[in-house]
Nucleic acid binder design. Sequence first.
DNA 1: CGGCAGATTGACCATAGTCAATGGCAGTGG
DNA 2: CCACTGCCATTGACTATGGTCAATCTGCCG
Lengths: 266, 266
Amino acid sequence: MIPRTIESPAPLETRHPAAHPQLRLVRDITQARQTTSLIPSSQCANCMMHWACIASAVPSAQREQLDHMVHTWRKIARGEALFRAGDTFHALYAIRSGSFKTVVSHPNGANHVTGFQLAGETLGLDGIAADRHTCDAIALEDSTVCSMPFHCIEDLCQDIRPLQHRLHQLMAEEIVRESGLMLLLAGLSAEARVATFLLNLSTRMQDRGYSALSFTLRMTREEIGSYLGMQLETVSRALSRFQREGWIIVSGKNIELTDMAALTEL
Amino acid sequence: MIPRTIESPAPLETRHPAAHPQLRLVRDITQARQTTSLIPSSQCANCMMHWACIASAVPSAQREQLDHMVHTWRKIARGEALFRAGDTFHALYAIRSGSFKTVVSHPNGANHVTGFQLAGETLGLDGIAADRHTCDAIALEDSTVCSMPFHCIEDLCQDIRPLQHRLHQLMAEEIVRESGLMLLLAGLSAEARVATFLLNLSTRMQDRGYSALSFTLRMTREEIGSYLGMQLETVSRALSRFQREGWIIVSGKNIELTDMAALTEL
DNA sequence: CGGCAGATTGACCATAGTCAATGGCAGTGG
DNA sequence: CCACTGCCATTGACTATGGTCAATCTGCCG
């Protein structure tokens, strides 16, 4: 993957088509499906996010059951909520395209971003605990999600052992992710937190076939600050400092990493 | 539950026997079992922590399967590890008596307490993600745990739908707990964090039949500080301040809450 | 009784929060 | 198409919270 400067921020889906040759094709097909409401038998199999999605644990023999379960797609416009804290819990959501933030609110009015989710990642696990969501999930850009009713997932887990195991892994990964984040919040300086955040985003972009060195932040400085437990000004200052040191190039929401090693050892 | 001062800190198990009339009895029976290595058929049913344990989701008809699964108890001495980061993941553990801390280590050497677990709570969920534990679980006092091999749990989940659901809830609760903790770490002042910590411990002690207003901290100031993302001195100062204000009475590891309302609104 | 880990308290300092002013960009409407 | 408007970001000056270092104290355990 070659670093490149970004003239005009292209939408996520079209950034590095070369990495996924079949990507544009799939996208065109799915577009057609949506407008015609046609639901072919193996929609999941063709999803470009299949590799990351929970559904990948279902062997091809049981594809039909899977497609039966994944019965709706939803489009969520930028700024809209997929679900809100307090909503009754129905389904898990796999992000098909776009990105989200999850926000929890403190009784006193303060609220805090607990995570950013990219395409292929799963939303809604928090709702399982008490049959009620505990956070808001807000789209950071126009996005689409597959919704998988949880009782259907649990049914399917009874038949498909690998799916059961995958679901458990998924939830456990979320637990591990959060304890890593706590380590971050509790132990590191503000600058180290920002650096870690950039590196984390970088690897996740790479996993999705985008450049690890040049990407667009879909969230504001304030959201980053909330996520990392600091003020937006501190985020801004950290980025400015990194640029002064020659470790990154910042241009608004576009970030280019020019010295990952320096960021790592902060 | 009546507040009372503590002359000599009694072990957790014998603090409020009145709350659980059958408690001492159960303890004596379990003691006998351990020394004689006798494993009666329905050990789980008689466990005093049954109400909190994952095993409570197994209907009585399937008790036998359950008891077959829960095949070992382990004693862990204070300061010893139940498992360590990097250990291959075999089992989930239900704490039968005692308490633990979980600690994650940062490559740079710093480490961070991610949680404190009391009797009835579950340890080891982090290992599911990658078949390898990601944190150390260290006993804060001499403790006993039931070990439940995870493949057995997954087998049993295929037969027992309620157990499957309970397991999912348990994991989701952990996710929610951690995002609450992040809110705490990121959003609140040092004093507010300490206050929240005390209140949280208080309700968990109450759930277990102990006084909500008077309890013993099993962990050091340093461990509390690590958990809450601050220095041990800051914890100490916060407790001193609360005492000066007349909100709590501190005597080493013994805490008495005398004005919960004041702590709540910090 | 001595030694040591844990806890408390104080003095000083640095990091990051707060307040404020300014600059840039994108989306909207004339 | 351009100008306006509001949101987002940047930067500076000052402040306060909490970290650091150090001295002392307490209580527990051998």
